[in-house]
């Protein structure tokens, strides 16, 4: 099982990313938990410059954009 973290301070793009990730894992039957990280101090521990970001098992896979379904599936494989 994979642990997915969505990093974002609560802007519209971050919410869109959370939804996109949830949709993608439901649609493709991927076994994963999704957690939203909104605290800026925690976010900055991942050393990113732009939000939203998608972290899979503590590795930053996508940053600075709302990912497409294909990108999410690729990040999870």
């Amino acid at each position: 099982m994979k642990t997915i973290k969505i990093l974002g301070t609560g802007c519209a793009k971050c919410k869109a990313t959370e939804q996109a990730v949830k949709d993608a894992i439901a649609k493709n039957n991927i076994d994963a938990t999704v957690e939203k990280v909104e605290d800026i101090q925690q976010i900055m521990e991942y050393n990113i410059l732009s939000t939203p970001a998608v972290v899979v098992d503590e590795i930053v896979k996508i940053k600075g954009k709302v990912p497409s379904e294909a990108e999410i599936v690729e990040a999870l494989s």
Binding site: T9, C11, A12, I40, N47, L49, S50, T51
Partner: peptide, 15 residues
């Protein structure tokens, strides 16, 4: 520019 990115950007630069 995205206003929600200004804080991560700021910290990233300082870092």
């Amino acid at each position: 520019f995205c206003s929600c990115s200004s804080v991560p950007l700021f910290i990233g630069f300082v870092k």
